[in-house]
Design a protein around this nucleic acid. Structure first.
Lengths: 152, 152
DNA sequence: TTAGCTGCAAATAGTTTGCAGTTTT
DNA sequence: AAAACTGCAAACTATTTGCAGCTAA
């Protein structure tokens, strides 16, 4: 993890600014999300953090993720074909690529869609809170004939 | 419903071309999807069709939807905040607007994103099968102070 | 004929929630 | 001190699946 988690870190300030009460569990979860581009699920976050934050419960991971999403600190990316929701703390407008074979979610910055949100907001009349922009297909690795199916 | 469902209808031909076996239940489900822009869920489809297709089962709706998605006839739009997946038979590249208040999914053709898919396909190396492009926010109706919260 | 579909009911699994105790503000 | 959070376990519910009978091809 590349993010400071001290009491005055950017991370904590962001949570306070968003009106989210700060607890050790929430810091752990939020900083884990910020420090990865793997778009984890609740369960994978729990399994990753559990050793370092003993007695962390899966329910708290779910509750915290919902809180972070509701307060706009994290985006919920939806199901990637594995039946569970993935999350992203990178709020920069960008596209995701979902592989229907290995169920990985990858960032894709090759197209700029920053202007689209503005156009949608203006023309639709919606008060926008977020976006979920994913293209679904088979990734190059899984396309190779020799590819072994990655562990789900 | 505005679509003919005779044995030689476009709809049936499309299913056959996609390699999907044709049954009365599947015709009912697929034509209902084609004839609406409401982006139904499995349950709402079931409730809508059940009176006209007695003994239709919810399991068949789920199975059929998966079959149609896998064969590329229908797009799965993911959860709209109501905890269940919504579906769309309109494969034209377009954006969806999801209201976090009333959980409605609406089409939005105000921005053209047809070129994005091509760029993604070329630059990412993915074999694209579909897309899920949604902006999330609060719709104008739900934004009105006098708005009553629509039935979920 | 036969592979594949259907309905039913049971199983699965992601996510939420009630509660009692603890922590943040 | 009040309001909100946590862990645990139980509850909830969308979705899947096993099976026996039916049907499209």
């Amino acid at each position: 993890m590349l993010v400071s988690t001290g009491p005055d870190s950017v991370l904590v300030r962001r949570m306070r600014d968003a009106g989210v009460r700060v607890t050790p569990q929430r810091i752990a979860i939020y900083s884990a999300l910020i420090g990865t581009d793997a778009h984890p699920t609740a369960k994978s976050l729990y399994e990753h953090l559990s050793p370092g934050v003993p007695s962390l419960s899966l329910a708290t991971v779910y509750n915290t993720l919902r809180t972070l999403v509701v307060h706009g600190l994290v985006h919920e990316l939806g199901d990637a074909g594995d039946g569970c929701a993935h999350y992203d703390a990178d709020l920069t407008p960008h596209v995701h690529l979902i592989c229907t074979c290995c169920h990985q979610v990858r960032d894709f910055f090759g197209v700029s869609i920053g202007g689209v949100a503005a156009a949608v907001a203006e023309e639709s009349g919606y008060r926008l809170q977020g976006a979920r922009l994913a293209y679904i297909g088979i990734c190059p690795q899984c396309s190779e004939p020799t590819a072994r199916r990655p562990v789900v």
